[in-house]
Structures are given as structure tokens and as C-alpha cells.
């Protein structure tokens, strides 16, 4: 058996091992690849810069902890940005695990800036009922949330949430949807098209959402970890995303190398098979 034939029938475990090696090495010894800021990331930054002080921004965490590595960096950077500019944040969640995960991030950042719960930020969480629940929020925010936040506090008693009657542009300056699938962006586009919508999506969803960007249904679209790294640069709070851009590049290089080698092996072997 020639080396190419062997290569074509390689055990996937070798690929797993190679990948592990290639990803871990640059984490210990960074290379420092550059980060390019795209207009769609800039759009979110500019929007936050132009907001009147004290605006209420709605966060929608429509993701599970599984995709947190892609989404959390932007959430952190954006919270830095919003809290620095004295804006207020209400967090809801279309995914039940998103509610739990994001509340940890929100509490941490709020504590760092000395923000007060119920005045500067609130976390209302997730409710059952999928679209039925979601559509209801368009007309009655507090009723749809069964009147309580995640810890069971009465929403009508907190200064921040007291007057938030509905998820409409009169009450919220905009929505930032942290989306990793369905339900998520599609619900906003379909059932609540009037809200200004900003999206941090996982990289996998970006191609599909491009059609919403073109039709202006989405105002800004940040793509996965790259989006996070770009936003971190814009805000000047370098964090996880910026640090992990190097292994990212190395991983891609490995896959491309494997693809090229695999194709050479395929061509060499099919010539051999044809010759036989």
C-alpha cells in the first residue's frame, strides 16, 4: 500500500489528534494575526454611540451555553460599552438556558460598573409557549412575563421595568439578539418587524441572515468570534475573542492543508485504479 492509499483511508482519530495539537499550540504561544473590522460590526458600535443617554436596550439571549464561546465576547464588550455610556439593559431570553447563562454575565458586568438591579438593569428570563409567548410581548410585556422577573420579583415594582408596557420602539431603543438558531432572529423579523434589530449570530447563521441585511430587516450583524474580536477592539476591552483569533487561523490552515492533501491522494489513487 502506497503512502497516498494509506492517507486516503486515514483513521479519523489521527485527524482529531492533529486538530487538537494545532489548536492548543498557538494558545500557549500566540502569533498575533491582525483583526479587520467589518462595516456590519461598525454599525452596531455607531448605533450605541449615537443613543441618547439613559436609553433602555433589550437583550435577547437566544442561545445555549454551547455556543457561548462565539457569542459571549460580544455580549461582554457590548455591556462594557452600554454601561460606560450609562445606558440601561433589560435581558430576556428566547432560549431557556440562555436566560441562565446570560444572567451570570450580566451580574458580573453590572457589579464591575456598580449598577443597581431593577434600576439600571433587569433580567426577566425565559417563559414557556414559544411563539405564542413571544408574540404576546409585542402588546403586553409585563403580562407576557407573568408579571415577574427571573427571581420572582414583581416587575411593576422595579423602577426600570415599571413603565415598559410592550416590546415596541416607544419603550426600547432597540433589540440586540444573541442568536444561535431557532427561535431567534426569525421571530423578531416576522412578528416584531418595527423594533430596530441588531444581531450577534454564530458564524454558521451569517450566510442565511445576509438576505435580511440586504433587505434592511437587520441593522447590524456580527459574525461569531470574529465579530466579538472586532467589537472588543472597537470598545478597547480586549478579551477572550481577540486572544483566540490565532488558533482559529491555525485550525483553518490545517483543514485546508488536509483538503488539498486529500484531493492529491484521491487523484493519485483514482489514476492508479484506472490503470489497473
Amino acid at each position: 500500500m502506497s503512502i497516498w492509499e494509506r492517507f486516503e483511508r486515514i483513521n479519523p482519530r489521527f485527524i482529531f489528534l492533529l486538530m487538537l495539537f494545532v489548536l492548543i499550540t498557538p494558545m500557549i504561544r500566540p502569533i498575533g494575526l491582525p483583526v479587520y473590522i467589518t462595516p456590519l460590526t461598525q454599525a452596531l458600535y455607531d448605533w450605541v454611540e449615537d443613543l441618547p443617554p439613559g436609553s433602555v436596550v433589550l437583550f435577547d439571549s437566544a442561545f445555549a451555553p454551547g455556543s457561548a464561546s462565539e457569542i459571549e465576547p460580544t455580549m461582554r464588550a457590548l455591556l462594557h460599552h452600554l454601561f460606560q455610556n450609562d445606558h440601561k439593559v433589560v435581558m430576556m431570553a428566547q432560549w431557556e438556558l440562555g436566560a441562565m447563562h446570560s444572567s451570570t454575565v450580566l451580574d458580573e458586568l453590572a457589579a464591575e460598573y456598580g449598577k443597581e438591579y431593577g434600576v439600571d438593569y433587569a433580567n426577566v428570563g425565559w417563559r414557556a409557549g414559544s411563539e405564542n409567548w413571544f408574540i404576546g410581548l409585542r402588546d403586553d410585556f409585563i403580562g407576557g412575563m407573568v408579571g415577574v422577573d427571573m427571581s420572582g420579583n414583581d416587575l411593576t415594582e422595579m423602577p426600570l421595568t415599571r413603565d415598559l408596557a410592550a416590546v415596541r420602539p416607544e419603550y426600547f431603543a432597540g433589540v440586540v439578539c444573541f442568536a444561535s438558531g431557532n427561535p431567534g432572529v426569525d421571530d423578531w423579523v416576522t412578528y416584531n418587524p418595527n423594533m430596530p434589530l441588531f444581531v450577534q449570530a454564530t458564524a454558521v447563521q451569517v450566510p442565511t441572515y445576509m438576505r435580511f441585511v440586504e433587505t434592511r430587516q437587520i441593522e447590524a450583524l456580527l459574525s461569531g468570534q470574529a465579530g466579538g474580536a472586532q467589537y472588543e477592539q472597537l470598545v478597547g476591552q480586549l478579551g477572550e475573542a481577540s486572544r483566540l483569533m490565532d488558533p482559529q487561523g491555525a485550525g483553518h490552515l490545517l483543514i485546508i492543508t488536509l483538503m488539498i492533501l486529500g484531493n492529491i491522494a484521491f487523484i493519485v489513487n483514482s489514476k492508479k485504479r484506472a490503470a489497473k
Binding site: 414557556a128 409557549g129 405564542n132 402588546d139 407576557g144
Partner: peptide, 13 residues
């Protein structure tokens, strides 16, 4: 609709 939606959400739960 708001109310019927809430009933159905409860039904599912």
C-alpha cells in the same frame, strides 16, 4: 389574542 396565546402557552407547559 394575547389571552388565548397565554392559555395555549400554559396548555403546552
Amino acid at each position: 389574542q394575547l389571552h388565548t396565546n397565554q392559555w395555549w402557552a400554559f396548555l403546552a407547559a
